[in-house]
């Protein structure tokens, strides 16, 4: 068995350190070792997008990384979006537009939506659909997610 390594990461602004085997995925490390259970595992092979996090400023799939690779990294999970009890404008937009049902894809979808809006502050429907095509939702058929992201983009433009 490979010897354990110490991994130090800054997650949602808080620096945390823990030991793990080199084989542990970043998703498992965030979920199980550090307790960020809003990072979801839907496929563990890099297709569904439920485990999406923001890694050093860009979205990444935490199931496709090892925890040891994240040493020294800055990570944002879905837990970092809301400001205390005040939801992020994108979260509010998802709520108002029924952009979620079971909620399992939602953390990844939200983080990807926010990144998408950074690139396209006023995204077209096509840009939204293409932009979230790497995040699978099995409940909504995406229509209300698309509506939510358009609405969320507008709210983000207004608040920035």
């Amino acid at each position: 068995m490979a010897s354990k390594v110490t991994v130090t990461v800054t997650v949602n602004g808080r620096t945390l350190s823990a030991e793990c085997e080199p084989r542990r995925t970043l998703a498992d490390f965030l979920r199980q070792t550090l307790g960020f259970t809003g990072v979801h595992l839907g496929c563990e092979h890099g297709v569904c997008g439920a485990c999406t996090i923001v890694f050093n400023g860009a979205t990444a799939r935490s199931c496709c990384m090892l925890a040891v690779q994240a040493d020294g990294a800055e990570i944002t999970t879905v837990h970092g979006l809301a400001d205390g009890e005040t939801l992020h404008p994108m979260q509010e937009a998802f709520w108002d537009n029924h952009g979620l049902q079971c909620g399992f894809c939602t953390p990844g979808m939200l983080l990807r939506a926010c990144e998408l809006v950074e690139e396209f502050p006023d995204p077209t429907e096509e840009q939204i659909r293409e932009g979230i095509s790497g995040n699978i939702c099995r409940c909504t058929g995406y229509q209300f997610i698309v509506d939510a992201i358009r609405d969320g983009a507008q709210r983000m433009r207004q608040t920035s």
Partner: peptide
């Protein structure tokens, strides 16, 4: 009306089976 279920799901505070230890 918007759903009462949603805020915790949106905030990453849901508790799915694998979140229980």
């Amino acid at each position: 009306i918007r759903r009462t279920e949603d805020p915790r799901l949106l905030a990453g505070q849901a508790r799915y089976l694998d979140d229980i230890r």
